[in-house]
Design a protein around this nucleic acid. Structure first.
Lengths: 146, 146
DNA sequence: CACATTAGTTGCCATCGTCAACCATTTTAC
DNA sequence: GTAAAATGGTTGACGATGGCAACTAATGTG
């Protein structure tokens, strides 16, 4: 792969990318009315079967009260529903509504488009490499976070 | 490059990485008393000669009042100094203090260490690929943001 | 059955960054 | 050369966000 631009350290690259795809780059851009935290929480409920409120907090790094508040906001927008777990009456299972799944889909597509635009000047083989590298890295940081 | 783990889309990978290196993953972890926004602003002042307050806002995506507040906070911690531009009396040039440069250095190293740990199980050639790919991507999103 | 533990909620609070109004300086127009 | 517009920066008021600690409800344990 060619290094087209000036080279930076790995850390600098990651911080640059993270900033562009964090709240500063995404909030509202792809999902009106949804903060990045809310978006991540919605995504978590979609990927985690019988997802409890605390589970969201644990996976995303919020306290349980923080998680409660995020879920409450999603609920007010009819993006998720809560129901008591049959197995344990203390637990709330959170799952996306139809609208929640739809918004998730739209948001991913919109973010994907933004990314495509950024990658417009990169040729196909480099893009392949970028995709593979990011996959490796995403798995690595994901595992490290647990 | 081998795809060690289950493969995700490029967008999913980026969102995963961005989350782990955004405020949720970094706030306080590497620079006590500094939010990610403040850290980015400090970094910006270090990389931009005669950096004005608005410049920080423009580069990072804050309003001018937001930028003022961030700079004020950095100033209170003696990490940056402000001085009137000789060329234009309206402009404040913001630059890091000794302590600011030192903190920046420490924070980058600390973040780098965190990253190293995450990448511990990835072999050298893959790591090289990851570094190159991220460099390409970082440049792409950086250009796209302008 | 008492007591400890765990899931979730809520009141109170500190932090953050926007908006709009404002001042100071510079630039433009006549 | 001076009045008016534009630009950089600051501040007050505000809404959004998420943590802490205290609380309720349900489950587990002795």
């Amino acid at each position: 792969m060619k290094n087209i631009q000036a080279s930076s350290t790995l850390v600098e690259s990651i911080l640059e990318i993270a900033w562009h795809f964090s709240s500063k780059g995404i909030n509202g851009a792809c999902c009106d009315n949804l903060s990045l935290s809310e978006f991540q929480a919605l995504k978590t409920t979609a990927m985690t079967p019988d997802c409890s409120v605390q589970e969201i907090g644990k996976l995303l790094g919020f306290t349980k009260s923080g998680a409660t508040r995020i879920v409450t906001r999603l609920e007010k927008q009819d993006l998720v529903t809560k129901h008591r777990s049959a197995a344990d009456g203390r637990v709330c299972c959170v799952s996306p509504t139809e609208a929640g799944y739809a918004l998730l889909q739209t948001a991913m597509e919109c973010t994907s488009d933004r990314l495509e635009k950024a990658l417009a000047n990169i040729d196909a083989s480099d893009r392949e490499n970028v995709a593979n590298a990011l996959n490796v890295l995403a798995n690595a940081v994901s595992l490290a976070g647990k």
